[in-house]
Design a protein around this nucleic acid. Structure first.
Length: 636
RNA sequence: GCCACUGUAGCUCAGUUGGCAGAGCGGCUGAUUCGUAAUCAGCAGGUCGGGGGUUCAAGUCCCUCCAGUGGCUCCA
């Protein structure tokens, strides 16, 4: 009996039934076969050693394919499990999937120490050198249950398998066997670049309420060389860490006395002021009004808003005159009270109230992280009071705003649409209509988005914006949330054209999110090289010798008069040293003034990061800096 | 909050089996007046994260608290 296999380039090969996938692929492309680590049969991933039992489409998988990469990660997870069992035989493996970055494997085991990890690493090296094969074996359910009798986690997975489902196990070498669908790389030599990133305790995903599992995280590459490249990239990313750059550039700092509360230094305060200016320009254009409300509200207001019930654990509380006050974690209560403070007409809608107030949120100590997770923050926040007919138009304006704003920072972002959670308030019809509106608006933006079913707030669906830091960690920045509930809770109403009273819909929204998180991520994105409009010092004027000092000061004054943040370097260091200092401080423009420049009324301009200089007239350079700052150009 | 790890000068880091606390950069002072990424010299700067313990003796060993790092949970 023969089967016919169709390869990706259209080639058809007839081979005897039961021929291994790897053998077919080697015959097809002998020159490239060394890179094949698995295959797909009619799109389904399979092992190279798998016998083929029907005519089908067959294609190779390499590390370049996402599916192939995942197979390497997942195989490495098995390798880690095998090593851990040899180091700590009492450990019970649970599951070990690939992730976006690499892989992890969760174990039911005592907490692991660095020594354990070292022994695991050594064990992995031995396995890789021994080139231990991965073998698949199909088992009957009873056989599988006997094999994993001592591991309740695996038994639970078995119990969850569908009645007719094939149950397969994989051997790594002779001893270690794991319940797994596969496929895997042919042998452990494919896992030469396996690297353990760390360990942590995790809450069991499958069985909440059980003791914590220990997770080993890692990343794997087929060669040592590829791993080295990855490690080099990571090291470069670490050099852009905002927690290092911020204090070094005098932007912000963190103090032991006030964990989670960032301290904005003079340079950083300039940046925040510019960000607020940026946000306010658009607020004016888009018909917003800005308000200021207190930082503290009494418990009764939070009871009305729902925060007392849903958010109290995250609030700082104070007692004043025997009453309990909470430091506001969000701006909504103030906005609601303003709307309610007098009778409202439909003619005032949409009413858009913006507020940039410090917010306080009690975050668990272990979650604090530089500027990206703090206990005091400021959002570019606003609350829109709208009618249902307004929702789509307002949403579209917000999505345009987001597009424009993130383009200025050249930041890539993705959307997440979170839909109705269990136990939500309000009727299903409102939810469905709102979700459909949001989804079609998102689709129209062309920005990648995913839907998180059931992850919406209890009061309405939301759209979140995600960006990534230098190490690839995703952070939520902006958010747009539809709220049908809070207007009802506060008994908000306006008089319509029909003379009747109506309840508005509220849209909570931020564009960049919080200055803290957004700036932390952006600082890493630009590696500290802030665009001219944000740079605390935009121009440093450098006299070649002291003889040009007064000319340099005169020119700096000229720049200052044009609204350019300029300063003169007046130390007695050599010019190359002062250039270096300015580069290290990431100042966008360096202007050198020497005898020659004084003679012809020019300046010598060096742009950050560029070797050498070019000559410009004094007026030309002023005009250039003003223009780059006004247009918020990304590069100097 | 949970698990592991880390904490020596402003920063980056040395500091033998427990035996007198160091370097480079930065800072200050002086000299130098220099043409696009580091001029030279001198000086200052540390309760070795805090507290407790073991020891003749603790930066080093033990306990505890604080802060940080990587994850987890949660979240802008």
């Amino acid at each position: 009996m023969e089967v016919e296999l169709t390869l990706p380039d259209g080639t058809r090969l007839r081979v005897p039934l039961g021929t291994r996938a790897g053998d077919v692929l080697r015959r097809w492309k002998p020159q490239e076969a060394h890179a094949f680590l698995a295959a797909t049969l009619d799109g389904q991933p399979i092992d190279l050693e798998r016998p083929i039992e029907r005519s089908a489409r067959l294609a190779p998988l390499t590390f370049e394919d996402r599916a192939g990469r995942d197979i390497v990660q997942h195989s490495a997870a098995h390798l880690v499990a095998k090593a851990l069992l040899e180091v700590v035989p009492a450990a019970r493996p649970t599951h070990g999937p690939p992730t976006d970055e690499g892989f992890y494997y969760d174990f039911d085991v005592r907490p692991l120490t660095l020594e354990d990890l070292d022994r695991i690493r050594a064990n992995i090296r031995m396995s890789v050198e021994a080139k231990e094969p991965f073998h698949r074996k199909d088992l009957r359910r009873s056989e599988a249950e006997a094999t994993f009798a001592s591991n309740p986690h695996k038994l639970r997975y078995l119990a969850a398998a569908k009645p007719g489902e094939t149950i397969s196990v994989y051997y790594t070498g002779d001893q270690f066997v794991d319940l797994c669908r596969g496929p895997h790389v042919p042998d452990t030599s494919w896992l030469e670049g396996t690297y353990i990133l760390g360990q942590s305790a995790v809450v069991s995903e499958t069985t909440p309420g059980t003791p914590m599992l220990q997770r080993i995280r890692g990343v794997a590459f087929p060669t040592r060389h590829l791993l080295d490249e990855y490690l080099k990239m990571r090291k470069e990313a670490e050099a852009r860490d905002h927690r290092i750059l911020g204090p070094r550039l005098g932007l912000f700092t963190f103090l032991d006395e006030i964990p989670g509360f960032p301290v904005w230094l003079p340079n950083g305060t300039i940046v925040i002021r510019e960000l607020e200016r940026f946000a306010r320009e658009r607020l004016e254009k888009d018909g917003y009004v800005e308000v200021r409300t207190p930082l503290l509200f009494p418990q009764s207001v939070y009871e009305e808003s729902g925060h007392w019930e849903h958010y109290r654990e995250n609030m700082f509380l104070s007692t004043i005159d025997e009453r309990t006050f909470g430091w506001k974690p969000m701006n909504c209560p103030g906005a609601m009270l303003i709307f309610r403070s007098r009778a409202r007409s439909y003619r005032e809608l949409p009413l858009r109230l913006a507020e940039f107030a410090p917010l306080h949120r009690y975050e668990a100590s272990g979650t604090l992280h530089g500027l990206t997770r703090v206990r005091e923050l400021v959002q570019d926040d606003a609350h829109l009071f709208v009618t249902e007919e307004d929702v789509a138009a307002e949403m579209r304006k917000l999505l345009d705003w987001i597009r424009d704003a993130y383009a200025v920072f050249r930041l890539d972002y993705t959307y997440e649409l979170s839909t109705r959670p269990a136990g939500s308030l309000g009727n299903e019809e409102d939810w469905n209509r709102a979700e459909a509106t949001l989804e079609s608006l998102l689709r129209a933006t062309g920005v990648p988005f995913r839907i998180s079913a059931g992850e919406g707030a209890f009061y309405g669906p939301k759209i979140d914006i995600h960006v990534r830091d230098s190490l690839g960690r995703a952070w939520q920045t902006g958010t747009i949330q539809l709220d049908f509930q809070i207007p009802r809770r506060f008994h908000l109403e306006y008089q319509g054209a029909d003379g009747q009273m109506h309840t508005p819909i509220v849209i909570h929204r931020t564009i960049l999110g919080t200055w803290e998180r957004f700036f932390g991520v952006f600082l890493e994105h630009c590696a500290g090289r802030l665009p001219p409009w944000l740079a605390p010092v935009q121009v440093r004027v450098l006299p070649v010798t002291e003889a040009q000092m007064s000319a340099a000061k005169g020119y700096a004054d000229e720049l200052l008069r044009e609204g350019i943040r300029a300063e003169v370097s007046d130390t007695s260091e050599t010019l190359p040293k002062r250039i270096r200092s300015a580069e290290v401080e990431r100042i966008p423009y360096m202007v050198v003034i020497g005898e020659k420049e004084i003679a012809d009324g020019s300046v010598s301009v060096r742009t950050r990061g560029e070797k050498g200089s070019r000559s410009a007239s004094r007026a030309e350079f002023v005009a250039r800096v003003v223009e780059r700052a006004r247009t918020r150009a990304f590069e100097p």
